[in-house]
């Protein structure tokens, strides 16, 4: 997991640098979550209709997802190397293509949880034990559809549904606490009828343990992962600028050095 996360961060840096892509900070806040999920939590390959599914609802952080899928052999090399180039199938937000691990159209915020709830609801009806994981950003929970789906999942006790909140505290225009009424995430999801676990979103062991508890409660599971935007590169951490900026020149070299030489995150 540690090696995977480290490699993915370097992949993402290179992908962004080569193509002028932003959203690096968002990709780095979710990298450890993805690395843990794809290191044994998610069961089944894309061809298996009974596989566990992951929907990255915060689609703008997809560079990290593509890198993980590529390293796990789900996203083929010849597709991966076209990232964000004209004619590609993998752009700045993922398109639905389950065969390469992309389970929904992601990019419009507030869509992932409803779809995930539908998958979990259908699986329940089909007496399948397939599970559904969805990752949202904290800014994304401004969207009303998130809370429509949260109520539905709680009402139907969809306890094979796991929502991981990548709470990096920054959204498109600033700090989440400054933009919309800052209620404590855990309190809010509990109030909506979810089982809640709060973790350090960069602590692999804690993430593993939290996600392993899916199904233990009759309620759907919310893992509130407290993360740092830009985690792994000191000058990107907790900086709104790196929601948009593409690393070039000295920035790129400094980031690469830090990521390559950094001890296990």
């Amino acid at each position: 997991m540690v090696e995977l996360a480290k490699a993915v961060r370097i992949d993402v840096l290179n992908m962004c640098e080569q193509t002028g892509t932003g959203h690096l900070g968002s990709a780095y806040s979710v990298t450890d979550i993805l690395a843990v999920l794809y290191s044994g939590i998610l069961r089944g390959r894309p061809a298996d209709p009974e596989r566990d599914r992951l929907i990255l609802s915060k689609g703008h952080s997809c560079a990290a997802l593509y890198a993980v899928l590529h390293r796990k052999g789900i996203l083929p090399e010849d597709v991966f190397e076209t990232f964000a180039r004209n004619g590609t199938r993998i752009g700045h937000h993922p398109h639905f293509e389950p065969a390469i691990g992309l389970e929904a159209n992601m990019g419009s915020l507030g869509h992932g949880l409803p779809i995930a709830a539908g998958l979990a609801f259908a699986a329940r009806k089909q007496k399948s034990d397939a599970r559904v994981f969805v990752i949202q950003s904290d800014g994304e929970t401004n969207e009303g559809s998130v809370w429509e789906a949260a109520l539905f999942a709680a009402h139907h006790k969809l306890n094979r549904l796991c929502m991981t909140l990548d709470a990096n505290k920054i959204q498109a225009m600033g700090f989440t606490k400054d933009i919309l009424f800052p209620t404590d995430h855990a309190t809010r999801w509990q109030a909506f009828g979810w089982e809640v676990i709060e973790v350090d979103g960069h602590d692999h062991r804690a993430l593993w343990d939290a996600h392993s508890r899916l199904g233990a409660s009759p309620k759907p599971l919310a893992v509130i992962a407290h993360t740092l935007k830009g985690k792994g590169v000191s000058f990107m951490e907790n900086q709104l600028l790196w929601h948009y900026r593409c690393p070039k020149g000295d920035d790129y070299r400094a980031a690469l050095q830090e990521l390559s030489g950094s001890p296990a995150l």
């Binding site: 929904a104 709830a117 259908a122 089909q126 559809s145 539905f152």
Partner: peptide, 23 residues
Amino acid sequence: ITNVGVAESNMIGLAAGMAMRGF
């Protein structure tokens, strides 16, 4: 039949998820 409540946006997402599993 499932009454999803007065929550149309969620209803469309739910339907998408259900259709992905063969409904």
